[in-house]
Amino acid sequence: MTLHASHDGGRLVLTQGRLTLREQLPEDAALLGDGKPAGLVWIDGVPGDGTVRAASMTVAAAAAGVYRPGWGVFAIQRSEDLVAVGGAGFHGPPDSGAVEIGYDLSESARGAGWATDAARALSQWALGQPGVLVVLATTEPDNRPSQAVLERVGFVRVADRGELWAYELTSLPD
């Protein structure tokens, strides 16, 4: 499925079928980091804990002067009505050809393929950017749903990173 990238008010917007990923700029991320909806309609009323933590990473990167547009947190939205069902994004800009992704779904959106769609779209976009050779992701050893997401996208497990299981993707399967 074709990935469409556009910009809306300075935000990167990635659309692929039923999925829209809308970048949250640092000012939006600050609201999300406080657990507020940041002008979005959330399926469960507010962003989930993982989205709150990811938004805080974007805020910290902006405060440290290392934030780069396109490489922060995104709201995962249903394309049909733009209701936010979770958050996904990058742990920061590419470093030595690698970028790390993460994702979080609202409780009532789990089990419907949204995390898989988001991880695939983020990875596809990232691997299309100059200098990005590998997309990384980590999971807790007991987080089987997240491991299944990564496997469906095409990630392969590599050497663990401390207590976390690590995965890499260098290209998307056809």
Rank of each mutant, 00 (worst) to 15 (best):
A38H: 01
I43S: 06
V46N: 02
V13S: 12
D95H: 07
P69I: 13
S79N: 09
G72N: 06
V85P: 14
H7Q: 15
A112V: 01
R110C: 02
S171M: 12
Q24P: 01
A137D: 06
H91W: 08
Y67A: 11
G65T: 08
V46A: 09
P173C: 14
G128F: 04
S96I: 08
G113N: 14
E23Y: 05
A115P: 01
R144F: 09
V149M: 00
Q124I: 00
A159T: 15
D28H: 06
R53K: 10
A137T: 06
S123C: 13
T2G: 00
V46Y: 04
L172K: 02
T138E: 05
R68A: 13
G9M: 05
G10R: 05
E168M: 04
V41I: 11
D174L: 10
P37V: 11
L12D: 00
T51Q: 06
L164F: 13
L12K: 04
Q129N: 10
A30S: 10
D34I: 03
G70I: 08
L3N: 10
R120I: 06
M1Q: 02
V132G: 02
D104H: 06
A64K: 13
P93G: 15
R144A: 09
D44K: 07
A5D: 13
A55T: 04
T20V: 14
L12Q: 00
A38F: 00
A126W: 08
S79T: 15
G72P: 04
D174Y: 01
A88Y: 04
T58H: 01
Y103E: 02
R11S: 05
A159I: 12
P173D: 02
A112E: 12
K36W: 07
S6A: 05
G45D: 07
D44E: 11
I101T: 15
A5I: 05
